[in-house]
Design a binder for these strands. Structure first.
Lengths: 133, 133
DNA sequence: TTAAAACCATATAGCCACTATAAGGTCAAT
DNA sequence: ATTGACCTTATAGTGGCTATATGGTTTTAA
């Protein structure tokens, strides 16, 4: 199949496919005489794997690492679990950071109501004063 | 004061200050005969304002908008409150997205324990199979 | 048969908010 | 005279794409 069909069947842009190839995440496929890339079922699976990882917000570097593990099927899989644990920890810390942020924003917002003049705006005042920390 | 002192007093890199100037967030200061930038107390306040906004993860575009409002002190401040409300909504949606993500990751992680071979790794399997959605 | 539409190719720039590097000028102290 | 700390500009890199420009190829419809 050609790049457009691969793109449609996995749900990505053709540009993204070429980008993954350049980044070494997708093996370079054979070419037709006219230079068009020809993909196989393996490429579909490989691309779908990448996409599933990306949905989970794994970085391209982490995906690369996972692909290396796939090449050594008889190694212990602890490193994979560790990679995932680290990623989960990262997501959790992002969540708590954002929750702190949300509280700060809500408290700032509470310092104003609509229908004031900008001069008297509690929000702008909160941002201008060093009272924020 | 020169750029280094401004940077130290607000806690940013000198590069960042020049970057804000290029982006139009910080007004271009006067220069000494040798070309060095000379800053005033106003610049300190202005830079600190930017930094407080950035801590709250407001974008440079949003900060720009806030600065425009500061120039019109007798306009109603509703637009400012709306800007903040939108930002809060955005942060909240990021949080819920990340919470969904965390659940998916934890459930994937639960499909494996350490001490398997990569071939049998539940995590890698979950990523390879289309069972994820 | 020809012309348009749809597809493919490469190369390059843009997004965001910086951060890093290179290459050099200025100034005070030793 | 030289070291070191400071300043200057210009340019490239980060991540993961996405957009644009420019041009070749194939398919489809008039």
């Amino acid at each position: 199949m050609r790049i457009g069909q691969l793109a449609r069947s996995v749900g990505v842009d053709t540009q993204t496919i070429r980008f993954y190839e350049r980044e070494g995440l997708l093996p370079p496929p054979d070419r037709q005489d006219n230079g068009y890339r020809i993909y196989t079922e393996r490429h579909v699976e490989r691309l779908a794997f990448i996409r599933r990882c990306r949905i989970l917000e794994l970085s391209l570097a982490e995906i690369h690492e996972l692909q290396r593990y796939q090449g050594a099927p008889h190694q212990p899989c602890r490193a994979i679990n560790t990679l995932l644990d680290d990623h989960i920890a990262q997501v959790r810390s992002q969540i708590t950071d954002l929750q702190v942020l949300e509280k700060q924003l809500v408290s700032l917002r509470a310092s104003c109501n609509d229908d004031r003049e900008i001069e008297a705006c509690g929000v702008l005042d909160g941002l201008s004063e060093g009272s924020m920390q």
